[in-house]
Each structure stands twice: as structure tokens, then as C-alpha cells.
Measured scan of single mutants.
Amino acid sequence: MSDQEAKPSTEDLGDKKEGEYIKLKVIGQDSSEIHFKVKMTTHLKKLKESYCQRQGVPMNSLRFLFEGQRIADNHTPKELGMEEEDVIEVYQEQTGGHSTV
């Protein structure tokens, strides 16, 4: 019986991991920090939209990076291997420009 009891508790931990929340720091170019608590399985588009709304800027005017890689709207913290207190960097999107060649 103890084996049966242990097995469901392991499964519960697996389920808990799926719905687990982590805190992420979003740091802007001006070094301002906003902290977000997100589920591991939530699409990061929600975090990006919330950040842009707080900053009063359109979402397409900023780019969000985690460990140097651009974050897509459909990425989740779990897919990117994010952990508690990880940092997302935000930069002004640069458009235009010309070749110097």
C-alpha cells in the first residue's frame, strides 16, 4: 500500500510543476525593474502585453530577450528553461537604418 501512496504523490508533484508559478524580473533599458509572477505554462505574450500596457507603449515597439534570445509570443517559461528570479531584458525595437557599404 505504501507504494501506491507514494506513486500518486509523485504524480501530484509532476502536476504541481506544470502549474507552478515563478517570479520573473523584467528590466528596461533605463534599468527599471518590474516583477511578474507567471505560470510555467503561460505564453509569455501575456507578460509582454502587461509590461507594455504599464509602460504605455505599443508591444511592437519593444523586444524582449532572455539569455540573449528573442522571446516569441508563444514561448512559455518552461520551454525556455526559466527559473525563479530570472531576468528578461527589454530593448527599444530598432527599425529602419541603412547599409554603410
Rank of each mutant, 00 (worst) to 15 (best):
S2T: 12
S2E: 14
S2G: 12
S2N: 11
D3S: 11
E5A: 13
A6C: 14
A6P: 12
A6F: 12
K7M: 02
K7Y: 09
K7D: 08
P8L: 13
S9P: 15
T10P: 11
T10S: 11
E11T: 07
E11W: 04
D12G: 13
L13N: 10
G14A: 08
D15L: 10
K16H: 13
E18P: 10
E18W: 12
G19L: 12
G19P: 09
E20N: 15
Y21V: 08
Y21T: 14
Y21L: 08
L24I: 07
L24H: 02
V26P: 15
Q29G: 01
D30K: 05
E33G: 03
I34L: 08
H35W: 13
H35N: 09
H35G: 06
K37H: 03
K39S: 09
M40K: 13
M40T: 13
T42R: 05
T42P: 04
K45E: 11
K45G: 15
K45M: 08
S50P: 05
S50I: 15
Y51K: 05
Y51G: 01
Y51P: 03
Y51T: 05
C52P: 03
Q53R: 13
Q53I: 00
Q53H: 14
R54M: 06
Q55K: 15
Q55W: 08
G56R: 07
G56V: 05
G56Q: 14
P58N: 01
P58F: 01
M59Q: 02
L62Y: 10
R63F: 06
L65G: 01
F66I: 04
E67W: 10
E67Q: 07
Q69P: 07
R70Q: 15
R70M: 10
D73F: 05
D73G: 02
D73A: 00
N74I: 08
N74D: 13
H75K: 06
H75P: 07
K78I: 14
E79Q: 07
L80E: 02
L80K: 05
G81W: 07
M82G: 05
E83S: 14
E84Q: 13
E85V: 09
D86I: 02
V87Y: 13
V87T: 14
E89S: 11
E89Y: 14
Q92S: 13
E93K: 06
E93L: 07
E93C: 09
Q94L: 13
